[in-house]
Amino acid sequence: MSTTDTVPVRTDGEPGPEPRPAARDRSPATSRRLRGLAERHALLLLLVAVAAFFSFYPPSAERFATSANLNVLLGNQATVALLALAVILPLVCGYFDFSLGAVAVASTVLTAGLMSFRDLPLGVAMAAGIGLGVAVGFVNGLLVTRLGLNSFVTTLGMATLLGGLIQWYTGGQTIQAGLDPRLARFGSATLLGIPQVVYVVVVVAVLLWYLLTQTPFGRGLYAIGSNPRSAALVGIRVQRSAWTTFVLAGAIAGVVGVLALARSGSATADTGTPMLFPALAAAFLGATAVRPGFFNVVGTIIGVLFVSVAVSGLTLSGASAWASPVFNGASLLVAVGLSHYLGRSRGVRT
C-alpha cells in the first residue's frame, strides 16, 4: 500500500516556532546541493585533470594518451578493480575483509595447480578456484557474524593462513607448465579494441551496482553498516546479510584469481597483499565520491582508474619504481582524511 493516497492534509495548525516543512527554505538547500555536487564529483574531476595533465606533460605526452597504453592500463588494472569491488561488499556492512587478496592468489594457484599437477580440464579448475573463494568467504562470515569475532583480526589471520597454504601447495615455485592455452588467450585478447578481461569487470560491476543500490537487500546492507542494532529492530536479518557479503566477496576474489592467471599466464606464490592494498585504497577513495561517506561501486571504479592513471602517467614520465606505492599510499591517506574531514566517516567497525 502506498502512503501517498492516504495522506490527509494537516489542518490542526498548532502554532509552531518554525514554518511547516512544506515551506522549505530554498537558498541553503541550493548551496547545499551545489556543495554536494562538487563533493560527489571531485574524484571524477581529479581523474580527468590527472589524465589531461599527463596527456600534455612533455615527458609522458607522447605515449600516455595512446590506445596501446590505455589497453595495458585497463587490462592490468582489471584484477585490482574487481578485487576492490569484492572489498566493498563487507565494508558496506561495516566489516573488513583482509583475506581477499590471499583468496585471489589462492584461487590463481589452485586453478593453475589443478591443471598443471592433475591435468584437470579448465572448467573444473576454474570452478575449484572460485569455489575456494566461496568456501573461505563462508568461513570468514561464520566466524565474524555468527561467532562475533573481530573482522579485522579474523580475516588477517585467514590471509596469513592462506599465504602459508599457498607456499605449501606451490613449494614456492611458479606454476607455468601444463596450463590450458585458452585461458592465456582470453587474458590477452581484445574485443572492440578493449581487453576482454575488462568486460568481466564491467559485468560484475553492473551486477554489484544493481545489488547494492537497486534491491531491498542492498538497502539493508547500508542500513546494517549505519547501525546494526537499528537494522535488526526493523526486521533486517543482520547476520545472514553480512554473512552473504563475505561469501559474495570471496566468490568475486576467486574470479579475480582466475583473471589474474589469464592475464599473467602463470601462478606465482605470493601473499596477495600487493594486490589487496591498491584495491583497499580504491575502495576508500571511492567512498569519497558519487555517494560520499558510503562505499559504492561507481566511486570505487573511479578510484581504481584515478590511481592507475596517475601511476601510469608517473611511470611514463620516468618516475622510479617507488613512485607507484608512494602514490597509492598517499592517495589512500588523503582519501580517508578527506572523508573524515567531510564528517561523513562512518567508523567502519573492525
Partner: peptide
C-alpha cells in the same frame, strides 16, 4: 543506538521498514 540510522538520509530512515514495496 537502536532506532536511528544517523548517517543515512531521512528518506532511507523512513522507507527502511517498507523497502520491498519499491
Amino acid at each position: 543506538g537502536e532506532a536511528a540510522f544517523a548517517d543515512l538520509a531521512v528518506r532511507d530512515n523512513l522507507t527502511v521498514t517498507v523497502r520491498r514495496r519499491y
